[in-house]
Write a protein that binds this DNA or RNA. Structure first.
Lengths: 233, 233
DNA sequence: TCATCAATCAAACGATTGTTTTAATCATAC
DNA sequence: GTATGATTAAAACAATCGTTTGATTGATGA
């Protein structure tokens, strides 16, 4: 009777369901994706989801865990490598940013094994209203974000920590939209050639680093004064 | 029998429904928000939504139209003002960015009349999977984005247009997360004090302008090279 | 006073949701 | 061959979804 969730037996159906669910979640969102859509696409029986995962919510969690654990492992590995190379000296902010966001875009560039699909999903889910999804994601992210923000604090000792946190937050937004790419409203006439992930990486990285290293607000830099009263120009 | 949608009669119930729907959409998303939740919160009868709006989809559209039309009107007005002041000379990129994103944050700062609630909703909806919502938003945005990108093309004649479009896209992502603020996963230890919209504006503006003016990719600038092969340090 | 019509109400509609049940199937080990 | 246990299958479950119906209210103008 108990669900043999952790068994390695019959990976066929289980994985087909995960793949189908992942793709459908991107297309329609969590709520709008029904069990029947999933099992139909996976060529499985309706009951298969509850048999293998227990519930729809548990399936959602498993879709994320499968990829996110691996992504964050790579991120931490990249940061470990940087710190090992530096040997105690402070890291360059650009390398830290690259370790975090570059790794993500690397996974997003993998269109063959579903990495691209998943990253599109992940970017959107960051602001997902669904309560339990948020909590799960937050837990999964906590350790990684902690380590990277600490690394940035060390790399940028003169920048207020609060400012760094905000800019990290902004960077996640930019990355999210970068991966969403053509998925997002096709507001821009020529649309995007997000077919080239290599150029996307360098594009995004320039933008992120420009933002991260921008002059701090409230220091009389042109262009960042309030709307109404322009004290200069 | 016909729904008197455009009538000004009895604004009471109609507006209560719009307000309730707006708040609930932010909290739970479109699909997870039921008609009964909306009418219950608005203290109206179930049938009221279909009577006043025709359908749930039409209600969603009306929730957006009510605010988005005004927001984009203000954006265009701000751009008009800039161009009038400049009198033919090219605009400063910072002012253009300010006219677009500053206006949005201005609306997001208005917590009393629901502007804040709506902007949280809007930021998330930009990557909304729901088909008809996306099409509606795209139509509503088309003209505004067109004018602002053209203005940026003029202001930055040396930057490839494709690059400008991408950076505009990135900027929208950063703004979206900026407004989402504490709503987003509370990944960051100290959490945010997004209670102060004035500081948020200057924070975001510094970041956006830093990103917009960043050196173009592929020009040997440190930190934007590929992961594996670092041709310079 | 009565007719009119927008607005509200309780109640029900058929369709679809996630989940469960019960039986059939399959491979493997004895 | 037969028992075992995991997997699949068809069918049904109660609950909830968006929507509609038909009656009732209440204000307005003739």
């Amino acid at each position: 009777m108990r669900a043999p969730t952790d068994r390695q037996s019959a990976p066929e159906t289980r994985d087909r369901i995960l793949d189908a669910a992942e793709a459908l979640f991107v297309e329609h969102g969590f709520e709008a994706t029904t069990m029947r859509m999933i099992t139909s696409r996976a060529e499985a029986n309706i009951a298969a989801v509850n048999y293998h995962f227990g519930s729809k919510d548990a399936l959602i969690q498993e879709v994320f865990k499968r990829r996110l654990t691996e992504l964050n492992r790579r991120r931490l590995a990249a940061l470990d490598r940087l710190e090992a190379e530096a040997g105690g000296t402070p890291l360059k902010p650009s390398r830290i940013v690259e370790a975090f966001f570059g790794t993500a875009l690397e996974m997003a560039a993998d269109t063959e094994h579903g990495g691209h699909t998943f990253m599109r999903l992940l970017g959107r889910t960051y602001t997902e209203p669904n309560g339990f999804v948020r909590q799960f994601l937050a837990e999964e992210y906590a350790g990684v974000v902690e380590r990277f923000t600490v690394a940035l604090f060390r790399a940028l000792p003169d920048v207020p920590r609060e400012e760094i946190l905000w800019r990290f937050h902004f960077m996640m937004g930019a990355m999210s939209y970068a991966i969403a790419g053509t998925d997002a409203l096709q507001l821009f006439a020529g649309t995007f050639d997000d077919a080239d992930p290599e150029r996307l990486l360098s594009r995004l990285m320039s933008f992120l680093l420009g933002g991260l290293r921008a002059p701090l607000p409230g220091q009389g830099v042109p262009g960042e004064n309030g709307r109404g009263a322009s004290k200069r120009q």
